[in-house]
Amino acid sequence: MQTTEQKQNNHKRTFNTAEYNFAFLDEGSKREIRRKSLKAVAIPGYQVAFASREMPIGRGWGTGGLQLTLSLLGRQDTLKVIDQGNDDSVNAVSIRRLVEETSGILTTEETAQASIIQSRHRIPEEKLKFDQILVLQVPQPEPLRKVERREERTRIQHAEMDYSAMWLTLYESIVKWGSITLGADYPVMVHERYIMAPSPIPRWDTEKLHQSHHLTLFGAGREKKIYAIPPYTNVQPLEFEDYPFEVESFDGLSCRHCGSMDSFLDEVVDDEAGITIHQCSDTAYCRQQQERIG
């Protein structure tokens, strides 16, 4: 038995085994998520159903991603958690603290130092390496939900590769507005077989999934689905020959902190001055750039 004093001294790197299993989830839950994630890797872009567990954060707040992360984690891992590119937002901090407290592993804000990166709505600007795993939180895993609201039907449509309703919607958008009006969560075709929702990442990030060095896992806790894109897999945004896919344009704009002209920028409106200013969405990348220029 440790005394309270000793416990406090050790607080940083130990955790009380009696209170939680390593990485919070029980081994049975981890095993199921692990089995499903392996099948997800086997069939790129296909949504594998899993028994999403109750987590100490609300469904829709990243429970799918968190369950994947907790099942992946080992004592050697270093975790980075980002929310809309930001390491310091409440959601990212809460998830990071939960993992720290229940596993005692190291966490980081440096993209290059992390072995697992859990992210909501962004892929880091820094190109991920082959030994890193990206876990994306997914609110709505079904790309066809916009055109068909019944799960039973969308499953059949995926099975039969019947994507006509999706293509028709894109076509109608061009007829009506002159371009495809989808922004974030732009649907992609994975390994020439399944249409997949890449989670609400901006179009800017979509191309980072194509033939990437790293493995990407997607977790939807509320919708109880896991899916994956293995490294070096074809990921094509849906497009027409005469209406090609386009990423967001920041022509002539740069980050107000680091001056970067080739990163994804957030718009910030300064009400007092009445002007719109821009800054990097990826805070870790921005800090790195600032340090480089001194």
């Binding site: 390593f22 081994e27 692990r34 099942s71 992946l72």
Partner: peptide
């Protein structure tokens, strides 16, 4: 716990 985690990650 830890050895099955290692085997899983190697499998993945």
């Amino acid at each position: 716990i830890h050895d099955t985690q290692f085997i899983y990650r190697t499998l993945l």
